[in-house]
């Protein structure tokens, strides 16, 4: 009976497996298909070749640069914050995490639009600066504004995994290190930092991937002064100059780029650690 039972229970995964083949694997094959064909469906390498012309290279370099900057800023902000969270009393930790998750529930279209209101030349921040008697700063339609938008949208995804690793750290380890003569700086670099690597790695991937592929934030806060890879892909699929083939090859290159950077990241954490995955 147990054999029959386990057969039916294993078969429970069948609908999901069929679904995955139809709607995960097949669509990716279509990306490949469209990348290597022209609009008539004939095989060609022109799409891939065209990506290496200067226009697209600049777009890729811009996207990578902004995404790396946004990810680093998130890391620098989130690491001490997660540490502070993990040292709070338990009741306050819950409140802090709740307050971190709450902005994620607001749609990013709306919050990005609110950032426009904040950063405009006559916006909230400049009005406040003027009232204090400082010179207004030009912020909107600059790369800096795009980075601010990205950091705002993705910062919680950096805080949560680092926090969940730090909250799980054994306090006795830190006490032991102190007993063995470590000062607080050494405790940080020799105990806490090495043990929080898995959280940092999953935080970095969770921020880097959406930042490199974003397309709305850059349109609104960058004011169309420069294009990112996401904007370009979106333009080829829903804009006025529709070209599925070039769009598909751009996405293919984007996917490969992300796979390479993840492979590099994973070299630093050899174990499959799911501890850092935040449960929202």
């Amino acid at each position: 009976m147990s054999g029959k039972r386990s057969f039916w229970q294993r078969a429970a995964a069948a609908p999901h497996m069929v679904w995955s083949v139809l709607f995960i694997i097949a669509p990716l094959i279509f990306v490949l298909y469209y990348s290597f064909t022209d609009s008539q469906g004939n095989f060609t390498l022109d799409n891939i070749k065209s990506i290496f012309n200067q226009k697209y290279v600049v777009i890729f370099v811009n996207s990578v640069t902004l995404a790396v900057i946004a990810t680093l800023i998130c890391l620098v902000i989130a690491y001490p914050l997660a540490y502070i969270f993990s040292r709070m009393r338990e009741r306050w930790q819950k409140v802090a995490i709740l307050l971190t998750i709450l902005p994620l529930w607001m749609n990013f279209l709306i919050t990005t639009y609110s950032w426009m209101t904040l950063l405009e030349d006559t916006g909230v921040i400049n009005t406040i600066l003027k009232k204090i008697g400082l010179n207004p700063i030009h912020m909107i339609n600059t790369p800096g504004a795009v980075v601010v938008g990205m950091v705002f949208c993705f910062l919680p995804y950096m805080i949560l995994p680092i926090y969940s690793v730090m909250a799980g750290l054994d306090v006795q380890l830190i006490e032991a290190a102190a007993d063995l003569g470590c000062n607080s700086f050494k405790i940080l670099t020799k105990v806490i930092m090495p043990m929080s690597v898995s959280g940092v790695v999953s935080g970095i991937t969770m921020v880097f991937v959406p930042s490199i592929s974003t397309f709305f934030i850059s349109q609104k806060l960058g004011g169309g002064t420069f294009q990112l890879i996401g904007d370009t892909i979106e333009g080829y699929f829903t804009g006025t100059a529709i070209n599925y083939n070039v769009g598909a090859s751009l996405s293919l290159i984007l996917m490969i780029l992300i796979l390479i950077s993840m492979a590099i990241m994973n070299r630093y954490t050899d174990t499959e650690d799911t501890k850092g995955r935040p449960m929202l």
Binding site: H16, S20, I24, P27, F30, P210, S251
Partner: peptide, 27 residues
């Protein structure tokens, strides 16, 4: 392999998931 395929939509950027499904539906 089931787990790897399951993780694909989480690892892929949303825009790639979106356009790949769109290409399937168009086809």
């Amino acid at each position: 392999s089931v787990m790897i395929v399951t993780n694909v939509p989480m690892m892929n950027p949303d825009i790639v998931t979106g356009i790949s499904l769109m290409l399937l539906f168009v086809f």
